[in-house]
């Protein structure tokens, strides 16, 4: 059984947020839901201002508070380390969201079809450009059930009144592909691989680079390692936050 982990090289990230877009396309997340999010930070005062970026997927914690608190076992940790949500079991109590210190959970406050960026009604204009299909596209892989229990866990499945979050693109990982954010980063900030395999790229990176994990002091034991950099101090200011606002 592999032990999946992700590394994020902070010295490379330039804050372009391509990973956020890749995630949106791959997982079809509704408006204002950012399963992958890139903080843009500003530190110190002019003229010493420093701007830096920190991508924030779900940390797929080994000691995940969200898994512990889920009353019905809808949020669970697979043996390979992925922390997933069973969208058919979740009752929408949002306890996982409250318990997670990283703020990576997004609840479907309204019907996801009504929460997409565009109103995809049968628009001939759109159809003329999309080869006669109407977005949002449904990735058939997302309909598959994964793991020994065959639970419905892949993204792109959105139901009203349940929680959603980064899945490490379980439907891609199961096929041997990298998560969408990893594959789409133009400067290869992310690496994804097996910690148990000493030759995997994440193992090598971790051996050769200084690294930290976010909010390690909370005891959550994240599976996402940040290379070359420091955790955000309480003094950093977030600039250009997304306009999530009150849309839900």
């Amino acid at each position: 059984m592999p032990r999946y982990a992700m590394t994020i090289d902070l010295s490379r990230c330039m804050g372009c947020r391509a990973c956020m877009v890749a995630c949106k396309v791959e997982n079809n997340t509704p408006e204002a839901h950012f399963w992958m999010y890139v903080f843009r930070f500003e530190e110190e005062e002019y003229p010493k201002t420093r701007v830096w970026f920190l991508p924030r997927p779900c940390q797929h914690c080994d000691n995940a508070p969200c898994v512990k608190v889920c009353p019905v076992g809808a949020r669970y940790k697979r043996d390979d380390g992925l922390v997933l949500t069973d969208f058919q079991r979740c009752i929408g109590c949002r306890y996982c969201e409250v318990a997670c210190p990283y703020g990576v959970n997004y609840f479907h406050w309204k019907h996801p079809d009504k929460a997409q960026y565009l109103d995809y009604t049968d628009d001939p204009e759109v159809k003329s450009r999309t080869n006669n299909t109407m977005p949002p596209y449904r990735n058939p892989d997302a309909d598959l059930r994964y793991g020994p229990e065959e639970r419905l866990t892949a993204g792109a499945h959105h139901y009203r009144g349940v929680i959603g979050k980064c899945t490490f693109c379980v439907h891609r990982v199961e096929k041997g592909l990298e998560p969408a954010c990893v594959a789409n980063c133009p400067v290869r900030v992310f690496e994804f691989g097996d910690l148990d395999d000493p030759n995997s790229i994440v193992s090598q990176k971790l051996r050769t680079n200084p690294h930290f994990r976010l909010l390690e002091e909370e005891g959550t034991k994240p599976r996402v390692y940040y290379l070359m950099g420091n955790p955000p101090s309480p003094e950093v200011r977030q600039v250009m936050p997304v306009k999530g606002g009150k849309r839900g």
């Binding site: 080994d62 898994v67 076992g73 669970y76 940790k77 793991g147 020994p148 229990e149």
Partner: peptide
């Protein structure tokens, strides 16, 4: 203890 079998009764 964190094995996925244990997410079910």
């Amino acid at each position: 203890p964190e094995s996925e079998k244990f997410s079910n009764p």
